[in-house]
């Protein structure tokens, strides 16, 4: 996961790029004809200084390697924690300082 958090005029631009297949579950494998099981990020939580600011719920129809851009009230020096979870229970988190 790559995160960019930049403050401007009291608003922080948070851009995250995740590496994830975002498989919808309705696509078929061309060779076997079997459906490829769904595998996508369901939830992303943005916390500023330990407080939830935005919770994003995603569906399988978000593109592969999703780019998620949100805005949060804040200034340079604030701590942002971004945690995600997918439908298979895999998860990850990253903490950055707002520039």
């Amino acid at each position: 996961m790559r995160v960019k958090a930049k403050a401007k005029g009291g608003v922080v631009d948070v851009k995250c790029l995740f590496k994830h297949p975002m498989e919808t579950g309705s696509r078929k494998d061309k060779k076997t004809g079997q459906k490829i099981p769904a595998h996508f990020i369901q939830e992303i939580l943005f916390e500023k200084n330990g407080k939830a600011a935005v919770t994003a719920y995603l569906n399988g129809s978000v593109s592969t390697n999703p780019l998620v851009h949100v805005k949060v009230k804040g200034n340079a020096g604030d701590t942002l924690k971004i945690s995600w979870k997918d439908n298979k229970g895999e998860s990850g988190a990253e903490e950055v300082t707002v520039r």
Binding site: A53, A56, K71
Partner: peptide, 25 residues
């Protein structure tokens, strides 16, 4: 036009700004 129309929903807290951007299929 998608089978399940909802692609993403962003629930805002006190510090959230009404802005969301992503890429969809």
């Amino acid at each position: 036009s998608n089978g399940s129309p909802l692609a993403a929903t962003f629930v805002l807290g006190a510090d959230g700004v009404a802005f969301a951007s992503t890429r969809c299929k």
